[in-house]
Design a binder for these strands. Structure first.
Lengths: 159, 159
DNA sequence: AGAGATCGTCAAGTATCTTGACTATATGAA
DNA sequence: TTCATATAGTCAAGATACTTGACGATCTCT
């Protein structure tokens, strides 16, 4: 291949945003791959994002919409998919004829359990790679960042 | 609104992956908003990801494809958009009739400059929020993670 | 009862990716 | 030189993850 120009003048970005992005993507790739390997091929990042908001005991779809930062239609489509794949089920809310209850099926609960195991494994690998001190420092900084974000009104995320 | 069930049994995730994801999204939201406010309304996350790989001096499209982890068609579509918005331009490669050179326009270079300023601002805000010690620790840990990832053959990202 | 808000759904469109098929050019060996 | 093959870029079609807008059904409040 012809290499010339200033392709050696590479500028691999090195700022917080880039690092966070890379780290986040790497984690997700690892987690998703492990979930697939564990037989949960239906698992995707978007679904994970949504499922992160559904407690084990289930919840109302409207409450889920409130929590996840996305539109109700997006939630609905994601739920449609999860329901079609047998991960969650939607039942009519006995206390409100308009509402629906979103609940994990046993398949969904299995996936949650496997996911917890995988998360733990990745976390331990990270801790081993960084050393306990640096890993703790990382988590501490990330939590502090999150707390600051939640309080900041200009975070464009509070709504 | 009717609140019942175990909606108080909230399970806000707190593991590395979630934290990284949240932090990454928050950074991107802040950056994109600032870029929009600076008049670069064409700016999106996907485009940023690609532009992060294009050096100031430009490069061959094929080299860009190699670097970015996405398909050549995706790169092409992103470039089509960036070109349509006047951010980059594609010139025939004088040394290879098949190739094209991707180069920033002055509009693109302006955006890069503004982006650098904004990045710096966000970084300083983060450092102020965390304190210099914790911020340095965060960057250190993220860099170490990235370095470890790059060396790990199972990272599914090396290709 | 009736007004208005809330809950979920349907329809349509956009952005970001994918795989597959194709053209044009370059390279290297017969 | 010429032909096989590899590389560079494009075109087409489809999947996923979102968006806004419109709508019917149900609840709540007066």
């Amino acid at each position: 291949m012809v290499k010339y120009l200033d392709e050696k003048t590479e500028t691999p970005p090195d700022h917080v945003g880039w690092r966070l992005w890379q780290a986040s993507r790497a984690w997700q790739a690892e987690f998703t791959a492990a979930m697939c390997a564990a037989g949960h091929g239906w698992f995707t990042e978007a679904r994970a994002g949504l499922m992160g908001h559904i407690p084990r005991g289930g919840m109302r779809q409207s409450a889920l919409i409130e929590r996840s930062a996305i539109s109700k239609q997006a939630v609905q489509q994601l739920l449609d998919g999860l329901e079609a794949d047998g991960v969650v089920e939607r039942l009519p809310d006995p206390r409100d004829g308009r509402g629906k209850l979103v609940r994990y099926t046993s398949k969904g609960l299995d996936a949650l359990r496997d996911g917890d195991k995988i998360k733990l494994g990745i976390e331990q690998a990270y801790a081993a790679r960084l050393g306990p001190g640096r890993f703790t420092a990382l988590m501490d900084a990330l939590r502090a960042l999150d707390a600051g974000q939640a309080n900041a009104p200009d975070a464009a995320e509070s709504k």
